[in-house]
Structure formats: structure tokens, C-alpha cells
Amino acid sequence: MATAMVNIPETAAPGEIVEIKILISHPMETGFRPGMDGKLLPRDIIRSLRCEYDGETVFTAELHPAIAANPFFVFHLRADRSGEITLVWADEKGNEFRQSGQITVG
């Protein structure tokens, strides 16, 4: 299963405001819903998302059970240097997933 669709611009002018998008494929099971057997389905959500730009953390988010399946994030960065932009998200069990792209500024 594809885990995320990410948009990281490949190039930008110095100081340009760029848009980063990520759509994560995830059920975001709340932990409040009973399954077919009447027992609660265990909670299974993405807990956190962060964005690293050239090694620096520039965006973080905490996710909660009320967020729907397949969470979608859009945020903006000022592109002031070339480098790697990495999106890192972690699930309930602490497993980390990452996807990155190189941005060239100039």
C-alpha cells in the first residue's frame, strides 16, 4: 500500500514561499468504534508529523483520534537555501515513516 503522496517543489527562487503537501494513507481508527464482534477496535492513529528542512525542524503537528482517515496537510515554507525537505510521521506503535525531496534554491 502506498503510504503517502507528497508534494515538495524541486526548485524555488531565494526567499520564495513554497507549498508543501502531504496526504497520508491511514485508517485513523479512533479506538471508540466497536467491530463486528462488538469489541472496541484498538486505536490506530498517526500520532505526529514533522517536517525537516536541511536538518532543521520547521513544522510539527500532533494528531488526535478525531482526525479523519487519510489525513491531509498543507503548509508553507520560505525557501532560503537548497537542501533536503523530509516529512516524518509516526504511528501508534512509534514506527516512523519518512519521505523526502530535494529543493534547489537559486
Binding site: A2, M5, V6, L23, S25, N70, F72, V74
Partner: peptide, 20 residues
């Protein structure tokens, strides 16, 4: 807007999974 942007349309996950 969600439907029009393939990077925002969650249905595209099904397309990717279908391709696999």
C-alpha cells in the same frame, strides 16, 4: 478542490493500489 487535486484526492490511493 479535493477532487480536482490528485495530491489531495484520497481516491488516488485506490488508483495507486489498483496499479500495484
Amino acid at each position: 478542490a479535493m477532487q480536482a487535486d490528485d495530491l489531495a484526492n484520497p481516491g488516488m490511493f485506490a488508483v495507486l493500489e489498483g496499479a500495484r
